[in-house]
Amino acid sequence: MNPPRRIVIVDDHRIFRAGLRAELGGSVDVIGEASTVDEAADLIRQVLPEVVLLDVHMPGGTGGGGAEVVKRCRDVLEKVKFLALSVSDEASDVVSVIRAGARGYVTKTIGTEELLAAVETVAEGDAVFSPRLAGFVLDAFGASGLVDNVRDEELDRLSAREVEVMRLIARGYTYREIASELFISIKTVETHVSKVLRKLQLSSRHELTRWAEQRRIV
């Protein structure tokens, strides 16, 4: 069996950090905690954990919250993966932290098993999409996926398969269920999700940010 994943918890609520540590305790190795942007950036660069569980809103730095932490650790993103963990439903929060470079976004109400699975997935370099994030992507890129007059670049639209995967995630399917539903391997599902994440991060669609500001996921 693999050694437990080395993770850092970044959240400005001490109670939440303690709860998370207790919850994950046996299965991962929590090597550090931080509560502000500056603390987090310093700690992460120093200890280089495999996964950072990152809150979106926190004090410090220039007020950029979780997204700022990711941006400051841009040069170590190869080694350190960020999983955003938030209570916020604000689309702009999601977009900012994902576009900064986080590998996934889950809500704090997620169950322990799912969170551990998400940590594992992120550590492997794949992306973690909650149903809500998938719904958000579908809404932002267009749910139909059947783009007729393709004018934008490759990055600005989803392939039919990616839309299908996103839709199944939004419907509450696990990667395993998606794989058997679409008759593909789990690895392929993960590849699709990672591709969508890349598109979400790199897309030049300026509408994406504006869209996120105007809209709220519920």
Binding site: A140, F141, S144, V150, R151, R157, E207, W211, Q214
Partner: peptide
């Protein structure tokens, strides 16, 4: 707001 965006794609 995003309906118009979708048509632009």
């Amino acid at each position: 707001p995003h309906d118009s965006e979708r048509q632009q794609q």
